[in-house]
């Protein structure tokens, strides 16, 4: 596991997401209700970029921009079929920096 510096917290506005290349991985990072969440960027359905999706359900889910597959930001699980899950990664704010462990 490697810790990556992503950005400053203000670089990802509340209610939005961004994608980062962290080593070999592309990780989507979302800022919802003052917290950051990180998960694999590629939707399990048809491969859309989740970072282009819409945060919904009061900031608890992210919806795929192509076909609305909706994933829980805390668990990465699809809200309709929890057997489908995007890989989650740890992300934290430390000394004014957003840090990803991946």
């Amino acid at each position: 596991m490697t810790d990556y510096f992503l950005c400053k917290p203000g670089d990802i506005p509340e209610g939005e997401g961004r994608a980062f290349q962290a080593g070999e991985r592309v990780v989507a990072v979302f800022h919802a209700n003052g917290r950051f969440h990180a998960m694999a960027n590629k939707c399990l359905h048809r491969g859309a970029s989740m970072c282009d999706g819409a945060i919904a359900d009061g900031g608890s889910t992210i919806r795929c921009p192509w076909h609305n597959w909706t994933f829980d930001l805390e668990t990465g699980r699809n809200v309709i079929d929890p057997r489908e899950a995007l890989r989650k990664f740890q992300v934290r704010v430390e000394d004014g920096q957003v840090i990803l462990s991946a």
Partner: peptide, 16 residues
């Protein structure tokens, strides 16, 4: 760039 001793990650716009 590398920051505070962490590896740096690059902001990207992935092509789906």
């Amino acid at each position: 760039s590398a920051h505070s001793g962490f590896e740096s990650a690059r902001a990207v716009t992935p092509d789906p």
